[in-house]
Amino acid sequence: MRAPSSILPLALVEVTFAAGGRTIVDAITCEIGPSARTVIVGPNGAGKSVLMRLCHGLLAPTTGRIEWRGAGASAVGRRQAMVFQRPVMLRRSAQANIEYALALHGVPRRDRWALARDALGRVGLGHLAERPARVLSGGEQQRLAIARAWALRPEVLFLDEPTASLDPTATREIEAAIDAIHASGTKIVMTTHNLGQARRLADEILFLHQGRLVERAPAIRFFTSPATAEAAAFIKGELPWT
């Protein structure tokens, strides 16, 4: 497989998003580079999910710019994928759900079956390939969503609270799948409000509070010596969850 040039880094310049008279993301400027696992944390309502959708391209910023600055940025739509907190599965088999995504990305019909099987195997769902996707459990559906995104061979994978509604066992399985994807060379950008998960997965932390990027730091430093009072309060569990 030839290695196409990278779409990264991703640059946000004074990005603001407002809806219904409320500013949800407030003048965020930052650059996200390759390789590290970037985890966006912050209390509920900090604007994490909206920021994720802005980066993925589902929402357009009210003001400011989002730029993919890598040499391969012209094909950015096909080089990054997203996994939602509640993924929507089509009424067809697990296998067919992945083949559907592959078809949308222009993968030739003859290659789809094998690529889908491979992706299912990597998240441990190979034995459920022919099972209708909608009757799978919540954890299985989330792993299927990850497999579906992964099958597209994205350079960047966004995950929005991928374990928010799952039990601990399912959560561990998802985290293992995320690790495996990262190990295969995919850049991970995810949100979570679960600090334990952030500690386990993050290489670097972006801390959001009330729509603003308050602190950005390598994970170890963020958890041991946060630079801002808000971050310190958040780590101690003192910030209100509103």
Binding site: H56, L58, G77, A81, M82, V88, Y100, H105
Partner: peptide, 11 residues
């Protein structure tokens, strides 16, 4: 229900 997911997949 499907909009975000389908757009994300490139439909």
């Amino acid at each position: 229900e499907y909009q975000e997911q389908l757009r994300s997949l490139g439909a």
